[in-house]
Design a protein around this nucleic acid. Structure first.
Lengths: 144, 144
DNA sequence: TATTGTTATACTCTATAACTATA
DNA sequence: TATAGTTATAGAGTATAACAATA
């Protein structure tokens, strides 16, 4: 039974969709047993793709250079990342993920997925199909 | 042109959907010109529905009583909320929204909606229809 | 001189422990 | 005694300003 949503006011959709996404995020954050603080986790994820310099990480996380310096320090201290001088440019450092760091990312990710997975099980196949299509659209929107 | 997603692995959907929602939230938070800090905003929203006691607010926000006491202090100081003794139970206080607080909520909400609204304009009607249906499902999931 | 990064310092939000007041 | 709330104190995370090293 498809609902009649042929021409919903765009502003209402924007507001409802934003709220729904933020509430999902909130629940995920609350329900998941976080292994690593959120700001550290963001950096670890970024390091999964490639090694980065502190400046790159600070720009991506929209955080000041000193804050990132501190975060990196905590990651290195915890054995989740390494900091080595860049042989090509002595001003820069290269931050890389350790095996323990990679494991921490997988662990946190798995924990965060659990709550969502449990909820999806209660939905109908049709609803899951809608969410699958929406997921692709939202991913594109978030990246735009 | 509907994509073939007849039987996506549920775990993959959970992960993709969660990530998409969290990234949308992140973008909204970054792009919006925040008027009030996030933790204060959450409390103001909660007060929109009804007056609350500090304990109720602390429980809902999953924060310690002293933290909530401090947050409430900031809101009262800023003229966004009021704190009055409960005539029925002298131990409790009643926290209520002021007009300025209600305006601050609307302002922040509008700012957060702007980014999402702009993105929706670039989508096709079909994509917006999918998101409208997904929004309702996600809202229900987040509340479950 | 400009860029990269760290250290110094301060502010905010968080928490636990200790305290006051009321039930 | 138990509950609601605040104050005291400390631990993270953030920022700006100042500094060191390299390009």
């Amino acid at each position: 039974m498809p609902r009649l949503t042929s021409a919903p006011p765009l502003a209402a959709l924007a507001s409802d969709l934003r709220l729904a996404c933020m509430r999902i995020s909130r629940r995920v954050r609350f329900e998941g047993s976080e292994d690593v603080p959120p700001h550290q986790f963001s950096v670890l994820v970024r390091l999964e793709e490639a090694t980065r310099t502190p400046k790159e990480l600070a720009d991506f996380e929209r955080v000041s250079a000193p804050s990132m310096s501190r975060t990196i320090g905590a990651l290195v201290e915890g054995g989740l990342a390494t900091r080595t001088p860049d042989p090509a440019d002595g001003r820069q450092a290269i931050i890389a993920l350790t095996d323990a760091g990679a494991r921490a990312v997988r662990r946190t990710r798995r924990s965060r997925d659990q709550w969502m997975l449990a909820r999806l099980r209660d939905l109908t196949p049709e609803e899951r199909e809608v969410l699958a299509r929406a997921s692709a659209i939202l991913a594109r929107v978030a990246a735009s």
